[in-house]
Simulated assay, not measured.
Amino acid sequence: MMPKSVCIVMYGGPFDIVSHRLYQRLKILSSLVSQVYLIIEGMPKLNDIPPNIIIYDISSPKRFFSYIKAIFTLAKVCKQSDVVIFITGFPKIVTFVMQARLAKKKVISFAGGTAYKVFKARNPNSRIISKIVYILESLCFWLSDLILVENYESTRFLGLDKYISKIFPLGTLVYLNESFFKKYKKPSLRENIVGYIGRIEPEKNVISIIKSALHTIKKIRDIQFIIYGSGSQRDYLVNYVDTHSLEQYVKIMDWIPYEKVPEVLQNLKVLIHPSHTEGLPLTVLEAMSKGTIVITTPVGGLPEIIKDGSTGFIVRSGSPRDIANKLIDVLNLPPDELDRISKNAYVLVKSKYSLKKGISLWKKMLENLMGENA
């Protein structure tokens, strides 16, 4: 049995840089249920929104008023929804989760990462507040009927084993359109361009990519590092490049429009993803779909798809020297070996993370959830 109506809650916006992800979620859900409600703080501009979607943008100049608006809006929408899905805003949304439970609605929480680990990475000395964040986030998961994760590897990394009976491995919240799998180009035919695409925040550990360049260029001179993104550490990266005279080898670029991501990825030989904490980052899947070699830390759900030497490469510590050593080894591999690994990754993501596969998983997840009432 499928629910008739679903409410999605996204708090902590704006969400302009992930508008493509939001659009796909709305399209998937609107194709499966009669009515979709979206409560969001900071609605990005989207075209061709399906007619069975009603949007409530709770944005306000003052965060407090956004929070109050969310409470009243959720109270209204809960009366008309069978299921409430919380995607972002943990642990601040614990009040909303409790509200949905009190309204006797089915509650789903998405654990793409943990607010606790992100907060700890950004504030390593705030132990007491970190503990409070952990408790509130745990309460959100405890109150949920279902917890969505990318895969079971994510469950272990995020410390959600105790909720195993509630876990549903959704693969990812966003899937790859067929267009991503077109124009495959062997990495052996590409120049030595190494890149990163994403947020530039402490937990993403982007600075280690820049620092790794200092070691890498001693062994490989014909190489270029390009960082695409924005965030609190962007200026720090720019200053580091200037201070260490790396301008010839490292470029810090602005965030790129989503429609240009396939082209950018196809020009990279290697994508480095050195995060301290993750779920299953979409950029990695997109890189694999374009044949780009991925080097990543073993965090979140990544070890389940990146098998060292088979579908990509794992760098254990994420330190600059370890990244540099791994990158040098990868770039010195025989061309046919690089192409083999690239093709393995391409085949994997096409079989597991296509949009068609995503729709079937969302359908199965909702049927399982509502089946508990049957």
Results as ranks from 00 to 15, higher is better:
249 Y>Q: 09
275 S>W: 02
354 S>N: 13
310 S>W: 07
339 D>Y: 12
312 G>F: 00
266 Q>C: 12
240 Y>Q: 09
345 A>M: 09
352 K>H: 02
317 S>K: 10
308 D>M: 07
238 V>T: 13
244 H>Q: 12
252 I>P: 00
243 T>D: 04
319 S>R: 07
307 K>M: 13
238 V>A: 07
259 E>Y: 13
260 K>R: 15
272 I>N: 03
314 I>K: 07
362 W>C: 01
342 S>P: 05
315 V>Q: 02
252 I>K: 00
297 T>I: 10
340 R>M: 12
314 I>P: 06
237 L>W: 04
270 V>D: 13
301 G>Q: 04
310 S>I: 15
269 K>Y: 11
298 P>E: 09
239 N>C: 03
345 A>F: 09
280 L>P: 05
355 L>P: 00
239 N>I: 01
300 G>K: 05
312 G>H: 04
238 V>I: 15
312 G>N: 00
314 I>Q: 05
348 L>F: 12
326 K>N: 05
323 I>V: 08
252 I>G: 00
272 I>M: 01
362 W>M: 04
332 N>T: 12
361 L>D: 02
240 Y>M: 14
251 K>V: 15
347 V>A: 00
298 P>A: 11
342 S>D: 06
259 E>H: 13
333 L>Y: 00
249 Y>H: 13
336 D>C: 09
334 P>T: 11
315 V>Y: 00
266 Q>H: 04
246 L>I: 11
320 P>D: 07
348 L>E: 06
321 R>N: 15
278 E>W: 03
267 N>W: 08
276 H>E: 15
356 K>C: 04
234 R>A: 14
286 E>T: 10
255 W>T: 11
258 Y>V: 05
239 N>F: 07
236 Y>S: 13
305 I>S: 06
318 G>E: 10
272 I>A: 01
347 V>T: 10
290 K>Y: 02
283 T>R: 02
297 T>F: 09
352 K>M: 07
234 R>C: 13
324 A>V: 07
360 S>C: 03
250 V>C: 11
327 L>H: 08
287 A>S: 11
332 N>H: 11
300 G>W: 02
309 G>I: 09
322 D>H: 06
246 L>C: 13
298 P>F: 04
326 K>E: 03
